[in-house]
Write a protein that binds this DNA or RNA. Structure first.
Length: 193
DNA sequence: TCTTCGATTGTCT
DNA sequence: GACAATCGAAGAA
């Protein structure tokens, strides 16, 4: 049985954690059925000074999970219909999180197909709102501990990814954010083979 | 394949 | 009351 990632993995500089999450396995377990996929794209958000980070407005009921202990899930709702999954990182009290933007489905393909309707297989989990739909993740999971199996959502260790196959890019969907935050290369993805 | 545009609700000002 | 870390349907080319 693969090991779960531990709090110490997350309790580091978010810019180190984000690329290292690539290749790890995100696992969702409901009714003893596993649905999982390899993480292939992440994005880092860090600090109140990061104008793309929700915590730029400071501590509010919405953002307080980001200020909490590392290794917990920050799940939030946006655009009136989509859920996003983030992993809280760094020291407690400092708001930082990694947005999981895409995974490659591995287990539970039937359930994913069912949850994603008639979407094509290549489109199942190639976006942050798509993978939350495929894994049945919603606001009920906000604040849960990703380092235990108690909540049915966790991350398992995987292969070490060599730096050559990791691509960096500006973060996505933050057009209204001013420089220098707009151009930070805080988006990490695996180069497709 | 590419572009446009509508959907729809929690959160903050 | 405005806006948001987006998706997918529909229409054009």
């Amino acid at each position: 049985m693969p090991e779960l990632l531990r709090p110490s993995f997350f309790q580091r500089e978010v810019l180190e954690v984000a690329p290292q999450l690539l290749g790890k396995r995100l696992v969702r377990c409901t009714n003893n059925i596993r649905v999982s996929g390899l993480i292939i794209e992440t994005e880092a958000y860090r600090g109140e000074e990061d104008q793309a980070c929700h915590a730029r407005v400071g501590l509010t009921p919405r953002t307080k999970v980001m200020y909490g202990p590392a290794g917990h899930a920050y799940v939030y709702f946006t655009y009136g219909m989509h859920w996003m999954l983030n992993c809280v990182c760094g020291e407690e009290g400092y708001p930082a999180a990694v947005l999981i933007r895409a995974i490659q489905p591995v287990e539970g393909l039937e359930l994913i197909a069912q949850r994603r309707g008639k979407a094509k297989e290549s489109m199942w989990c190639n976006g942050p709102a798509k993978l939350t739909q495929a894994l049945a993740i919603d606001g009920n999971l906000n604040g849960i501990d990703l380092c235990t199996r108690d909540s049915g959502l966790w991350i398992e260790d995987g292969d070490i990814i060599s730096p050559e196959v990791i691509k960096t890019a500006p973060r996505i969907g933050i057009q209204s954010v001013p420089e220098p935050w707009l151009s930070k290369l805080w988006n990490f993805s695996l180069v497709v083979e």
